[in-house]
Design a protein around this nucleic acid. Structure first.
Lengths: 338, 338
DNA sequence: TAAGATTCCAAAAACGTTTTTGCTACATTG
DNA sequence: CAATGTAGCAAAAACGTTTTTGGAATCTTA
């Protein structure tokens, strides 16, 4: 068993309360006594029980982060970068992170209830916001602090960081149009995800402004993974009237489309142009480098934690809804059509 | 404030202990009373304080997982897959995961002391084991249950799961040799990492068995990232006596080398052959697909948790040191030299 | 009907802290 | 020298559970 205040009390002959106050540096303990106590603590390798501290103080110094395994986005490097960003900042502020995986539907909510209702966390960071997001409703109802990565549509005044992905996809699509493309495919996901909805809008708006009709035949719906991007890419690029360019809703699917194009013997940037979204490190090092929107996800992770910290500790949040402008990087995956 | 047993007691008129026993399903409470209590609990949205439970029971039902940010392996998809594997199994067994980022040196140990000494976790999963690993020594000293992903060399009898990466790299190198390569470069990392040490051995042994002298000039040392792979790949492939094949110590660096080769106008699989290690989903979908060792990291994550669970709960662990045979997948990134 | 058994519930202790309160011994002051 | 102040420590309460112990009321049995 580990050593507790009680043991230090026995060792030194002082009372538990004096030990505690000595360790915490209160002024009503004799410097000589404190020294003895500190030495004993060091000698016996005393570390205070975080659990007891938490119960007593009512503070857990822990935030929650549930990985939405629902919908398959396992191997997305995006998440680990985000998590390290959050973690590095949390560590700086002496906070811990409780991570879980959350299913979907009622099971998802149950997971949140257990963690939040059970008082294990002081706040949460929520990713992959959905159009009607039960998590947000629940957290609002229970007055639990949270920050979203991505917006929601059915509640105003909830704090978030998001990238204006409507504009982002619009810029990319427009870039394709300006490069001469008229037949531009789109690989996306079901639009219960908020960011998908915005990206879909961006795609359609860019087309509309250029006077190009929206053609549902060259819009495919997948699940954000490399594999999905590849199979949908194959589908699109095998058409006899295949598009000369493809906008993918994220980098992973774009890189999947790379695989499809290469399998079909098409040269990317010449036979077919491709764009992505996220700016994962692979996008830069793909061949050819991928035109995409660069999202500084590690930095965003840090900022998400900072905002949550302020919210939890009732500090002034400043801007609580941060919509970052997209940063497009134009690379060789886009060229003019033949 | 959230509703506690006390509140249920007030509401229903029963005592706290009866409420507790009713909720826990003990037999010495009248079915009618239990029903009333359960209803009240539901109505008032009662969720037990996990903290109090933990303090009382001495069990936290939480394991620790510290991401080693030291040494840059941020955007490695490997880690998020591992974490989801651990998380999914933990969720099944009603365990939570405390995630932190850990620096290096004394700071790293301090992080472990805080979490372990503070009694926040019942056990840990340790990744990226190092030759002389202070974490292992500490955990042994404090009798904290843990499972390693990867072996350590200075302690026998510590439980781990590892892949025999010496054999793995050996198979890949031999495959290159059998394809006709004699000049085979190696991109690796400093060998304080255990797995690097084994992989280095595998490389050298394969060369030796084929009677090829080890040439330090074509062995480069980096840091497991895509960028590092690219710059070292450039270095190797720009030599006038450039190797006809390159063994990279992980997929990310191999894919970085892809970028280098492509930048130099070399065709992979023809002008230069490349192998990786890990089998991340990108390896399959790269162009050309990468010859590598496939590591079922999600499954390993699940198994790691299972082992840790048994260790914590004093169940029979069975085999406590699991060395999985490498599973090589031979793909088009390897061809015969010109 | 008296004695023992059973049913249902409440009181209290314990987990390990922090904080409030108070006490004793000594020093300071007029 | 009596009154007041202060320094240094200890006792006890509290956070919210679970579990142990026990007690009153009812039921069973001879």
């Amino acid at each position: 068993m580990s050593v507790r205040l009680k043991d230090l009390a026995k060792q030194t002959g002082y009372s538990i309360s004096t030990i505690s106050r000595a360790l915490l540096g209160y002024s009503d303990v004799n410097p000589a006594t404190r020294k003895k106590i500190l030495e004993a603590a060091k000698r016996l390798d005393y570390y205070p029980s975080q659990i007891a501290k938490q119960l007593r103080s009512g503070r857990t110094r822990t935030i929650g982060f549930l990985i939405p395994t629902y919908g398959e986005r396992f191997s997305d490097p995006f998440f680990i970068e985000l998590l390290t960003g959050i973690g590095d900042m949390a560590s700086l502020m002496d906070y811990d992170i409780l991570v879980g995986t959350s299913g979907d539907g009622e099971k998802e909510l149950e997971e949140y209830r257990r963690v939040v209702g059970g008082g294990r966390v002081e706040g949460l960071i929520i990713t992959r916001t959905r159009i009607r997001d039960q998590r947000v409703s629940y957290l609002l109802k229970t007055h639990t602090p949270f920050i979203l990565l991505g917006r929601v549509l059915d509640h105003k005044n909830v704090p978030y960081i998001d990238i204006d992905s409507r504009s982002g996809i619009k810029i990319l699509t427009r870039h394709l149009i300006e490069s001469g493309h008229r037949r531009i495919g789109f690989i996306t996901t079901p639009d219960d995800l908020v960011f998908t909805k915005f990206r879909n809008q961006g795609y359609r708006e860019a087309l509309k402004e250029a006077g190009i009709p929206y053609d549902p035949d060259i819009v495919e719906i997948g699940n954000l993974t490399l594999e999905s991007g590849k199979s949908l890419g194959l589908k699109l690029l095998s058409r006899k009237d295949r598009p000369t360019a493809i906008v993918a809703v994220n980098d992973l699917m774009a890189l999947g489309t790379y695989g499809a194009a290469q399998q079909l013997g098409l040269t990317i940037g010449r036979d077919v142009s491709i764009t992505g979204y996220d700016g994962i490190s692979l996008s830069k090092n793909a061949h050819p480098p991928l035109t995409t929107i660069e999202v500084p996800i590690y930095e965003i992770g840090k900022q998400l934690f900072e905002m949550l910290y302020k919210l939890i500790n009732h500090e002034n949040l400043g801007e609580s809804q941060i919509l970052l402008p997209p940063k497009a990087v134009f690379r060789e995956s886009v060229g003019s059509p033949a």
